[in-house]
Design a protein around this nucleic acid. Structure first.
Lengths: 199, 199
DNA sequence: AGCTTCACTTGACATAGTGTCAATTTACAC
DNA sequence: GTGTAAATTGACACTATGTCAAGTGAAGCT
């Protein structure tokens, strides 16, 4: 009964994921997704109320398949604040390319679609919390720059480690993924840590 | 004869500018612009072939009114590379809020419109050249970090000083404009300059 | 076998916004 | 007055999303 319904749902999500990844998040229509999933366009609406909800479900599906939870959990186990920050940047930075297509599509529709905007805000709030935990660990260790409050440091990480910035470095400037991650770690260290440029 | 035609054209550009600034670049339709300019929607197409060209013309119009050329020229007069970089970041950083609405609208349509994409690419290329001149001055002064090539340093400035990042700091995180500019200057200095964190 | 139910199909339609076209109107210039 | 250029009006094509109603087909129940 419902096992086949779930199958179709997953097929739709995978179709959306694949198409959006290939097109870098633009130009993918509901009819394209339906065709790729092997069903009619209208049938997609039997599983998702609209495009925004489909894309939101796709991000959650990717999170599940790619095990974000486990990846981010690793950063929580670091003993020092500095290690924790580096691990978190590495985990998040390497996760961006996995969700890029779908997030880009959500980003493109956020102006016209309240649900897309809300979903992105929610995701970004989750990211902020991750950065906040790392910054608090730095503060606890006494290595956070005295010129910065915790919220300010979080703002800096959150603003600079955006999907848009990743896009500029890796897609527009052609930087390899590993180089991007290394630069972001260096950036975080230079901007957030106290004293004579540690790391 | 053509003096009145020019007037209408300018009225359209100002209407687009005002509306896009007020709405932060989203939800402004051709009919809204026409109404604000006091003409019919169809008449807009007598002056601009399509929405993308109108927005592109609007950015050029803003450049003209706000005298970008003169502002950026000032940074060229600085004697040291460091001063030049700081002046350029200040000029560009303070220019972003002026064009924000229109650029945001162009950004939103770049996926579906080749003309919009080309116009943005062109603008971004101009920005790169400004950063490149500043970075070359740093290299000439021998203060550019030995770990970075000129193109890499330019990539870093260009990627981090994007309109999208400005948006995150000032609009999403609520930072005052001056604080944003100061942070970007600090960032550039810490990431690009050689030796024990100068400036 | 007969009946229901559920997932899906087909085709038609509403809506929004962009861009096009043709037929007029208005106004000014000579 | 007549011509010309700018603008108006109304109609229409196109694209993509989302809705609706009627119908098909296969599995499951009794």
């Amino acid at each position: 009964m419902s096992s086949e319904a779930v199958e179709t749902r997953i097929r739709i999500l995978n179709a959306a994921w694949t198409l959006l990844e290939a097109s870098h998040g633009s130009g993918v229509k509901m009819s394209d997704i339906a065709r790729a999933a092997g069903i009619s366009r209208q049938a997609v609406y039997l599983h998702f109320p609209n495009r925004a909800e489909l894309l939101i479900a796709a991000t959650r599906h990717i999170d599940e398949v790619k095990k974000v939870g486990a990846r981010l959990a690793a950063s929580r186990e670091a003993s020092t604040g500095i290690e924790r920050l580096e691990a978190f940047i590495e985990a998040w930075g390497n996760y961006i390319p996995e969700v890029y297509g779908v997030v880009r599509a959500l980003l493109a529709m956020r102006d016209s679609d309240a649900a897309a905007r809300a979903a992105l805000d929610d995701r970004m709030r989750g990211l902020r919390e991750g950065f906040e935990a790392a910054v608090k660990a730095l503060a606890r260790d006494g290595v956070l720059s005295p010129a910065l409050s915790v919220p300010e440091a979080v703002d800096i990480l959150w603003s600079l480690l955006s999907v848009e910035t990743w896009e500029k470095f890796t897609r527009d400037c052609g930087w390899p993924q590993a180089r991007y991650v290394a630069l972001m770690q260096e950036l975080a260290s230079k901007m957030l840590l106290a004293g004579p440029a540690s790391q």
